[in-house]
Design a protein around this nucleic acid. Sequence first.
DNA 1: TGATATACATAGAACGATACACAAAATGAC
DNA 2: GTCATTTTGTGTATCGTTCTATGTATATCA
Lengths: 341, 341
Amino acid sequence: MEKQKLGLPTDRVTIRHVAEHAGVSVAAVSKVLRNAYGVSEALRTKVENAIDLLKYRPSTAARAMRGRTYTVGILVVELTNPFVPVLLEGIDAGLAEANYKAMVGVGRAASKLETSMIESMIDTRMDGLVLIGPQISGSVVAQYAKQIPIVAIAHHEPQATLYDTVNSDDFAGAQMAVQALASRGYSDIAMLSYDRSDSPSSVVAVQREAGYKAAMAAIGLEDKTRIIRHPHPSEPRTKELAALLSSKDRPRAIFAWSDLDAIPLLAACHEAGVDVPGTLAVIGYDDCSLAGQPAVSLSSINQDPHALGARASELLLSRIEGREEAQHVVVQPTVLLRRSA
Amino acid sequence: MEKQKLGLPTDRVTIRHVAEHAGVSVAAVSKVLRNAYGVSEALRTKVENAIDLLKYRPSTAARAMRGRTYTVGILVVELTNPFVPVLLEGIDAGLAEANYKAMVGVGRAASKLETSMIESMIDTRMDGLVLIGPQISGSVVAQYAKQIPIVAIAHHEPQATLYDTVNSDDFAGAQMAVQALASRGYSDIAMLSYDRSDSPSSVVAVQREAGYKAAMAAIGLEDKTRIIRHPHPSEPRTKELAALLSSKDRPRAIFAWSDLDAIPLLAACHEAGVDVPGTLAVIGYDDCSLAGQPAVSLSSINQDPHALGARASELLLSRIEGREEAQHVVVQPTVLLRRSA
DNA sequence: TGATATACATAGAACGATACACAAAATGAC
DNA sequence: GTCATTTTGTGTATCGTTCTATGTATATCA
């Protein structure tokens, strides 16, 4: 039973067994594993045969003590946003090519938990980190970036010098949404955002608000500019939606910061008998799978999350390889017009 | 730059520094860390002070070489099912109490990828594994369970002796759904499932189908029994839904294996002008957050994912502590009747 | 008093890989 | 045929913990 408490219930195949079986030194096997310089073709095949035969897998734990783990950590704020899984797929695909694995930690939008997860990932000696929409501020990220290569997605901090960022152009995306509505003749365009009391400006919603304001100003509608703040989608907000729809100064068009808010809004419209787009036009953000369903048919902004993830994994790998200067990638979103606007 | 390539860019605070600073041996510090037997109060406080002062964090990587990592791996099939994030929260909460951390791997419903993730988690020397709705068969899980403590959720294998399971009673849940519909006078009740060609019987959808059939038979409706198979929700199936609604032998009521299918079904009804529940009654499964929205108001079966997760973490922790005999927990679901049925 | 527990602390060998320094063999230049 | 250089392979210290074995006080008992 003591053995059970220990972490070694099984007789693992180690690099030593492989070396013995192949009739070479431990160091030689290690070289093959890392495809390091100085291995002949003959040696390589001998070792690889032994590996296959013994079904040897190097212990990441042991590797972590001196070299790389070939594992990167991904920190996500929350999984409920349907845009996240696709992003993860994009990252995963890029990593898989280079024989890297990913482990996901969920920060649940609590900065305390986020830092503790990051530290835990550093402790487990991951080779690099991808942060998705982190709540923590750029300076905190920079602090960690001194210890481990970091790429942040959905985190607007173009001046950062210690880590890379990959972003959809949220500012431009919001502008596109406003322009799309304006070009269809709407002028009374409000934005539906959420209560983001203490969020740093790196947060995407802040960027989208800025883009909204700029676009409204650009077409001479600054007096119509109005940002409605509801609780975060993680909380119920049926009442707020109903109140908004029945209020006297209900806007003619609404740009929602996320489909996560736009879809319940559509549902509330249907409930309250408000015609979309006849009485109220709606455009969302993220182009989640539900938006495309004919029954929903919500206009939205597509960020191409798969591409974002792919770019992020590229950047991270090159940074792990030693790149020092920061890179900041911005991907342009696209508008998808459907029935709701 | 060589240093950068190595994994040790920073000067980590090690257990040795702590020991030196506290004026005790390395072994003593280790004992405090693991709160092992044989440490005096005086020693403990001395060491803890030093730890706080130096901001020491034990290296999980090094721990992994000999002892525990205090980290468990969670393998999820896919993240798109909204029931999963809540489950993760439940697990996380239970683990946090015992100072354990969780790392999530996404298997993306590919058994090849699943096994590779499991192996990777074993290699990183996680202390235990939670598998959520694994595609791989019970015998494969058992194989891994010889190497590492495993608890499987949403995996019906009550005979398993090498690992534990936590399940919602999917068979009973499906019966409840049928009974709920039957008690409201419907008899032409079809089930909407997905094409699960090569899934083992441990998969939840299979259990729900069995429950459906049993319940239909129990109330003398075996001749009305009909299972409609659509592609998995990860694929678009608008056409199939439209065809179903316009077909001549459209059923009077539908029990969907998941809200993931029931909600698009509702949308399609709305689209096609089919009145719910007047013309077609619908009941789903999972009680996802959207189902409760007044505009949607979908009847559904609630599995209490948070409780499932909490039970799973309990089981895993006790298994890590050395428990050998398997335990199989079954949690009863509840019906939530709303407007759709 | 001596014998024997008991509690506390320590030294040092693991764990399984990597990576440095170096030796041996092969190659090339003249 | 000699010397320099390159290629290929090896020995072994090392990473930061845990854990076994062992030591040394101090308390307990007959």
